[in-house]
Design a protein around this nucleic acid. Structure first.
Ligand SMILES: [Zn+2]
Ligand SMILES: [Zn+2]
Ligand SMILES: [Zn+2]
Ligand SMILES: [Zn+2]
Lengths: 150, 150
DNA sequence: AATCATCACGTAATAACGTAATAAAAAGCG
DNA sequence: CGCTTTTTATTACGTTATTACGTGATGATT
């Protein structure tokens, strides 16, 4: 099986999972929201909001930024998409929603390429540090810039 | 001694340390750069770039945004200031420059208040996760949103 | 001192990112 | 169906950050 077919299969898996998750939580994965999600899946990496505006627009219809931001907000609230604050961009969240794991997005400082890793060790260490800082709870997501190994 | 005097003393300490660090690394802490740094120190928390524009401007002279951004870039490169990407703001980095510690900025999701903690445990755990992600090096700064304990 | 290279700053314009306000359309529900 | 809530369209606006270009300061080299 070709890598392209593999990727296509992976795509469909993600779409199906998103669909299921929304169905189970009474969330509506409307056409626009699904198109945004699909575009992020297909891109294979972080994409800016205005890039999404361009990619999902055509001659007939030009989407407004606010349309994309609303869809992104929905997808983020649903836990399907992460915002990379350092990159002003948005990226698919994959992996099982493990409540005890920290979801770390490593971002290559040069290319913007991202790799997501889930770690209970980091979660535990951060929890300790948070206590020290007087924080009673912390987000299960974080973003760390670095240099990817060639 | 009053808390105000203590803070004033702390201020002067930070300024002196910044001055020393720049001198030792042949960096030029010019008047504008020092004014920006001092303003961040005095504010005691994160400040937006355009806030800094306002605070450092007066009737006689209105600073341009780019002037502030250049000073912030210098201070960030020198390791004196940290950008909070989730808040679009800038904050003093304090503590000793411990190469083995992760500098974690906990950001209260509600108020934007920050607390900085250095942790070698988090650094080590993140290093392991980075290896897993195929990253050979990571930034010693990270930002975690959370909820401050009242 | 004159030359040269580099860095810092001023000024203006613009790009990039994100939100508010309002009205229209669509979807859920009795 | 009529009523309510959610979603979307359109427009305008606000905020954050960068680009471009010129000028002056600085510091070393000849
Ligand atoms: Zn939301
Ligand atoms: Zn994830
Ligand atoms: Zn820089
Ligand atoms: Zn620090």
């Amino acid at each position: 099986m070709s890598t392209k077919a593999l990727r296509k299969e992976e795509e469909e898996n993600l779409l199906r999972r998103a669909d299921d998750l929304c169905r189970q939580n009474n969330l509506r994965l409307t056409p626009i929201r699904e198109r945004v999600y699909r575009e992020l899946v297909q891109s294979g990496g972080p994409v800016g909001a205005y890039d999404l505006v361009d990619r999902l627009s055509n001659e007939k219809k030009r989407l407004a930024p606010v349309t994309i931001y609303r869809a992104l907000d929905f997808l983020r609230d649903a836990g399907l998409v992460h915002r990379l604050a350092t990159q002003n961009s948005y990226v698919i969240s994959h992996g099982q929603p493990d409540m005890n794991a920290m979801k770390i997005m490593f971002v290559d400082a040069k290319t913007g390429e991202t790799v997501e890793v889930h770690s209970t060790e980091v979660a535990e260490a951060v929890r300790k540090a948070a206590e020290q800082a007087g924080f009673k709870s912390v987000s299960p997501f974080m973003e760390v810039e670095g240099e990817i190994a060639q």
